[in-house]
Design a protein around this nucleic acid. Structure first.
Lengths: 335, 335
DNA sequence: GAAACATAGTTAAACGTTTACTTTTTTAAT
DNA sequence: ATTAAAAAAGTAAACGTTTAACTATGTTTC
């Protein structure tokens, strides 16, 4: 029953007293075989503990039938996207594997290499900061379509969020509360999402005559904390931003921590707005107003583009709407 | 430059005017080749856009050199484990791919199948509820070691958390605050972690003469909310639990939401304790006291066991200590 | 009873590598 | 010059599948 090294089609064929072709056909259901023969083959498979060798199959067939997904980090946003991808791919009957680049060019290069060397059917990528399409264009073969998500880079199709519109609505809402000065916390501008969020806010602030102060930092909670400190220390107390907008969810936690430590009262004293919704944003006191990307939908849309590409159709980048979820950290009164 | 279908070693060999063996050797650095020849080969590779075909290599070599990781969901706990796995595997020079089972037996079976059919070098699994070692024992070949993590099942080596000890310390701390009745919120007992947490608390409550009331629910924030409601409605106001202990992090958010909606004052009125630390637990008001598993370390330990298994050494299951992180939701006064 | 046709099964040639075994070329020592 | 040794490169047989092209065996049909 237990086998030392894995048995092959050959062994099964010998055991069942049929040809290796017949065995292959019962395994893949690729031809009618007499019920009695099939039974014999199946018994033999059980008997000697045969396990299908996909890698041989893939070599013969020329593709793995797998989709590769590269995210930059296992953070809640990307894992939501993953869930969308998973769902959509499942209905298409594809399996997929995930790997994370850790925002490192070199790792991303290695992983793309791994994906094409393993003959993935397609690749979904959230590109690292400073990524340049050229490598993909040159290295990844045409049969293996590449779809970007979250971040766009010119030359490759992507699905991203339409930030401008929601940012404008947010700015409008903020002036309605009487806020005059927004402090914005961003990470590197080598990432398209950060540029979008920055430019969107700049535009909106111009339109509504809000003062805007930027602070760039590392995209973690420590960064959010430090950036808030710096932002506030740049001004006299009365000129400090009355709202701080964190361009991602984990920096948001840093600003919240700062506010708490320094005794600011969120929603009264100061307003705080975040990007991407998490469950805790709702139960926080006060609940946090956020610009909420449709992460799940982004995953689905990326798969849809991929599918189109696999069918040889032309694919065009897509931008998903962003929802402004108003809660109370922006200054809205408790009901 | 652009190639229709991928070129092969053969094409490179022809282009560079060497044998296919030589090309293979320059690619793998598996034999000394004269500098000039190597240069010629490398030029040819660039020229015709050759891409190494790993699946052919794997077939020949008999293994993919990849590690497969199966998690049940992309939640913060598992993604922390993933980071530990990633780190450790990286230093070992392995690459790995992740897939999620969504707590479904059938998906897990398919994915294990995929991993062994793809000739993974080893598999790390967080098994789904009700998982039974027999399938793995029967189906996965010996050359492909399987290490479980987070949840244990008899018959397979695993790395899990030692809950009892920390639970006991927690109980002790709770009686020190004068609490008398703990309400515990669990999900299904088909998962070993839930059983551990339950038995640990039962034991501790016996030891410290605390009253214990259990409520079982779905492992999401809605479940946490509902379970708290049920738990509280089972008793007259004065007999209600004075501390509720959520056996995982996302149910915790549900109990927090309930507490908030019904005007309980956490840390005074009622105590709340959670399982697994998240960044938001610290910035929450009051900061949440938690039993904190070493997720990252769990990933590392799983890889260590795997490595031992790959080296043919005997592996024995490991339990990692759990830290009791006392903050203020348990009733500790603000400093 | 031969021609035509299903049906069930077999044979053998790929797929693109790796590598043990050979062969050729170069170098160094006489 | 010759040759032994060392260095560099080449040959060809796997690895475990899939599948086109056959073969063998009934079963119809005229």
């Amino acid at each position: 029953m237990e086998r030392k090294s894995s048995a092959t089609l050959h062994d099964v064929a010998r055991e069942a007293n049929v040809s290796i072709a017949t065995v292959s056909h019962v395994i893949n259901n690729s031809r009618v075989v007499k019920a009695s023969t099939r039974a014999r083959v199946e018994a033999a498979i059980q008997m000697i503990g045969y396990r299908h060798n996909m890698v041989a199959r893939e070599l013969k067939m020329g593709s793995s039938g797998l989709i590769g997904v590269l995210i930059v980090d296992y953070n809640p946003f990307y894992t939501d996207v993953l869930r969308g991808i998973e769902k959509r791919l499942e209905t298409m009957g594809y399996k997929f594997v995930v790997a994370s680049t850790g925002e490192q060019w070199e790792r991303q290069r290695e992983l793309i290499h791994l994906m094409v060397a393993r003959r993935m059917q397609g690749i979904l990528i959230a590109p690292v900061a400073g990524f340049d399409a050229e490598y993909v264009l040159r290295y990844v073969p045409e049969q293996c379509p590449v779809i970007l998500f979250d971040r766009e880079v010119s030359g490759l199709p992507s699905v991203t969020s339409e930030t401008r519109d929601a940012t404008k609505r947010l700015a409008e809402h903020l002036v309605d509360h009487g806020h005059r000065h927004v402090g914005m916390i961003l990470s590197t501008d080598e990432i398209s999402t950060m540029r979008d969020r920055q430019f969107g806010m700049e535009e909106a602030c111009r339109e509504f005559s809000l003062k805007l102060s930027m602070e760039r930092t590392s995209p973690d909670d420590r960064g959010g904390y430090e950036a808030t400190r710096k932002l506030f220390s740049r001004f006299a107390r009365e000129d400090q931003p009355d709202v701080v907008f964190a361009a991602n969810n984990v920096m948001l936690l840093g600003v919240l921590r700062y506010m708490k430590e320094y005794g600011f009262s969120i929603g009264k004293n100061r307003a705080v707005v975040g990007f991407d919704d998490q469950i805790w944003c709702e139960v926080f006191e006060p609940p946090i107003t956020v610009l909420d990307q449709n992460a799940y939908g982004m995953g689905e849309a990326a798969v849809d583009l991929l599918q189109a590409a696999l069918h040889g159709e032309a694919v065009t980048s897509k931008r998903l709407p962003v929802r402004l979820t108003i809660r109370r950290s922006c200054g809205c009164p408790m009901e």
